[in-house]
Design a protein around this nucleic acid. Structure first.
Length: 415
RNA sequence: CGGGGCGUAGUGUAACGGCUAACAUGCUUGAUUUGGGAUCAAGUGACUCCGGGUUCGAAUCCCGGCGCCCCGACCA
């Protein structure tokens, strides 16, 4: 893509109502637009990143047998009354509204109920299970206080997978696999080093649920980490019986600020029982389906990457989720330079490399500053100087120094 | 939901109750420039969040509303 055709622009200053690093940088670089507190639109660059994160998660979910669907945001209250979750005293973050005929409906905060209800139509026999169903869907949560840019919004994109198993044993086997795919996801988006699986309390059918917590000062949680053992537990799980059970010495744990970037939960029969999701086993007996749920907030994950990987100059995207892989910067409006840059641009495009070409007639400093802010992994400069040398200047966003390379060397790096 | 702060061109700031609401940046045009947001010139851009009130006079004071940010609680 040519940068002059990109409708967003960068800015030097962040709006004064944004304090969080992720929102400041993402707005300055033109990735997102704030609509209201906790509600952000995703602009071309931002949507590209979000889609890449989505694809990584999709690959990992498909790899463990997930089937993708898309459920609805509008929800009939009757369904939620069956599990007791329509009441404001139970779930206080509902956005509720009414149809013209007066019927009360809600905007989904999560989808256990509707999916369980859908599956009642299709699950009859042990032969129909297990099932692993997921979606990417906008969730609405009427938070009392939105904060931290895109890390805690009132409307946000979430991947939620739900598992439907015949037995606890079958569920446990999948739960293990889900943990592996979750680790893969955090590694692939560049947060592997700073993301821990933590033991948390909760779940009516299992002692622990698990959260994935990324260490960053931008987080609002506290976790207790043993880096050597790669063990971490949540604050509320700092209890003698937990230490004993997990074989942890509390003195070896270090307190860290973190943000929850995912969670996995054993639900058991909590939803299948009240909603009547049952199957017949081999003996012809009716059994409740054994469930689990597995969530990742994509928008929060994107904000977390910015918090963790940015520097003073801007965002530093990992290749896996960068909006483009290569940022070509042509300096000046000299025809030879533009021709050379165009040739490279077309060559990389033809090889399937995603390229943003800054062909605008601006001063070098401005273009470099923009490039650093936007944070594309490889910057390639084409100028009178590089043409004279018969080479290209390449610099990785993660590195301070640029190097002059031949076209072959460049292609070897980025194709 | 409790406490605190705030609302002025697209963005960031300024303006004692008193002149045509200022400066920077952005944007437009032109000139000179071209390896880290350059310089100069001429332009452009604001019902000062909304509604009332006090006053000869309100961006400024008062009341109400709406919105935004932060701390806490809450949530995940």
């Amino acid at each position: 893509m040519k940068q002059s055709t990109l409708f967003t622009k960068t800015r030097k200053e962040a709006p004064k109502d944004e304090v969080s690093r992720n929102a400041q940088l993402l707005i300055r670089a033109g990735y997102i637009h704030k609509e209201m507190a906790g509600v952000y639109a995703f602009l071309p660059l931002g949507l590209k990143v979000l889609k890449k994160i989505e694809n990584i998660i999709r690959e990992e979910m498909d790899a463990i047998g997930g089937q993708e669907i898309s459920m609805t945001a509008l929800q009939d209250k009757g369904l939620w009354e069956k599990t007791g979750r329509w009441k404001d005293e139970v779930v206080d973050i509902w956005f509720k509204t009414k149809l013209k005929n007066g019927s009360e409906i809600g905007l989904a905060t999560t989808h256990e109920e509707p999916l369980t209800a859908i599956l009642k139509t299709y699950v009859d026999s042990f032969r129909d299970l297990p099932l692993y169903v997921y979606q990417f869907q906008v969730k609405f949560r009427n938070e009392t206080r939105a904060k931290s840019g895109i890390m805690r919004g009132r409307e946000f994109l979430m991947k939620d997978l739900y598992s439907f198993s015949r037995t606890k044993e079958e569920h446990d086997a999948f739960y293990e696999k889900a943990q592996i795919s979750y680790s893969n996801i955090y590694k692939r988006v560049g947060l592997g080093e700073v993301t821990y699986k933590t033991a948390a309390l909760g779940g009516s059918f299992s002692k622990y649920s698990h959260e994935y917590q990324t260490i960053t000062d931008a987080g609002e949680d506290l976790i207790y980490v043993n880096e050597e053992e790669q063990i971490a537990i949540n604050k509320e799980a700092m209890l003698p019986e937990v230490f004993a059970e997990m074989g942890i010495d509390p003195d070896d744990l270090e307190e860290k600020k973190s943000v929850e970037v995912g969670n996995i939960f054993t639900l058991g029969e909590k939803f299948s029982e009240p909603l009547g999701l049952i199957y017949k086993n081999e003996a012809g007996e009716s059994k409740n389906v054994f469930m689990g749920c597995y969530g990742i907030g994509l928008t929060r994950l994107m904000g977390t990457v910015v918090e963790v990987l940015s520097d003073e100059k801007g965002i530093v995207w990992p290749e896996s989720i960068a909006p483009f892989k290569v940022h070509i910067i042509s300096l000046g409006s000299d025809e030879k330079v533009l021709d050379e840059a165009k040739k490279l641009y077309e060559n990389l495009n033809s090889k399937g490399v995603e390229v943003l070409w800054d062909e605008r007639d601006l001063r070098p400093g401005e273009k470099f500053a923009d490039s650093d802010l936007i944070g594309i992994p490889y910057r390639v400069v084409v100028s009178a100087k590089t043409i004279e040398a018969g080479k290209f200047e390449v610099k990785q966003r993660t590195q301070a120094e640029a190097s002059m390379v031949t076209e072959e060397e460049l292609l070897a790096k980025v194709v």
